[in-house]
């Protein structure tokens, strides 16, 4: 099945440095081989979209990037994932430190049952990013501004985060992730639980986040991938089928499977 894998072609990196470099990544859930031989280079300050039919392994691969799969007992990962020259699966790496640099936003908004302020301040507090209250206030404000939420919540920072609307909750979760000033931001179908208006707000936000972070977003919506991403990777049955600039993938797919997916024949 080797020929079925990545369609070889040169990808225009537009001169941006590589942030994450993955080589021969395999993921097993118990006996199930969930990710097969994935090689991919993710660029800094770029939105990369992972697309593919459900169960294709795109979320699994995303969760490998900040070792969230460590929390699943039966998951086993092989291969190398190099973040800025360091393998994140090296034995010396503490996943706690890694996750401070590679933040994550989940499918369902999951604000903690605490105040809005405490939600955003949670990361900076546990990682000790501030020396005093004033500095923490600054971080929280900056993160909330970064998540385009500041104007909506600045007067009720002490209200509980679960009281916000769905779109606000998801932006709060993004703010929470941004507050630890990560380098990479992983987003696992961040809009699937949101209504269209909230979705467009979050998409707009993702576009802005690209100025500061490398963003990797898993989405089941091709339109969304086309709207927000510069690079797109198509996964199918655990294989990375095709990877390239979003324009290329959508207008000129090389692999027949990609084409079928894009044109809606499989999914």
């Amino acid at each position: 099945m080797n020929d079925m894998r990545l369609a070889e072609r040169t990808v225009d990196t537009q001169g941006k440095p590589i942030k994450f470099s993955c080589r021969d990544v395999q993921v097993y859930y118990g006996d199930k081989h969930a990710i097969k031989d994935v090689n991919v280079d993710l660029e800094d300050k770029t939105v990369t979209a992972f697309i593919g039919p459900s169960g294709c392994g795109k979320s699994t691969f995303l969760r490998c990037l900040n070792r969230m799969n460590d929390t699943i007992d039966i998951a086993r990962i092989e291969g190398k994932m190099i973040l800025d020259g360091e393998d994140i699966y090296d034995r010396r790496v503490d996943p706690v430190q890694l996750r401070a640099r590679v933040g994550m936003v989940f499918e369902k908004p999951n604000p903690f049952p605490k105040s809005i302020y405490d939600n955003v301040a949670y990361g900076p507090r546990i990682h000790g990013l501030s020396r005093n209250k004033a500095e923490l206030d600054g971080i929280v404000e900056k993160a909330l501004r970064g998540a385009a939420l500041w104007n909506e919540v600045k007067d009720r920072l002490n209200e509980t985060g679960t009281g916000l609307s769905g779109g606000q909750q998801q932006r709060l979760c993004i703010a929470r992730a941004v507050a630890t000033s990560p380098e990479v931001l992983l987003m696992d179908e961040p809009c699937s639980a949101l209504d269209p208006i909230a979705t467009s707000q979050v998409e707009e936000l993702i576009d802005q986040l690209r100025e500061e972070f490398s963003v990797v977003i898993v989405t089941h919506s091709m339109q969304q991938a086309a709207r927000v991403s510069q690079k797109t990777a198509f996964f199918h049955l655990g294989n990375l089928v095709e990877y390239g600039t979003t324009d290329d993938i959508f207008t000129n797919p090389q692999d027949p499977r990609t084409e079928s997916y894009i044109s809606g024949k499989i999914g």
Binding site: T71, R99, G103
Partner: peptide, 15 residues
């Protein structure tokens, strides 16, 4: 307690 809260917290790098 929903797993999503655990994921949220671990994903931010808490132990």
């Amino acid at each position: 307690v929903p797993q999503s809260l655990r994921d949220g917290s671990l994903g931010l790098g808490s132990t």
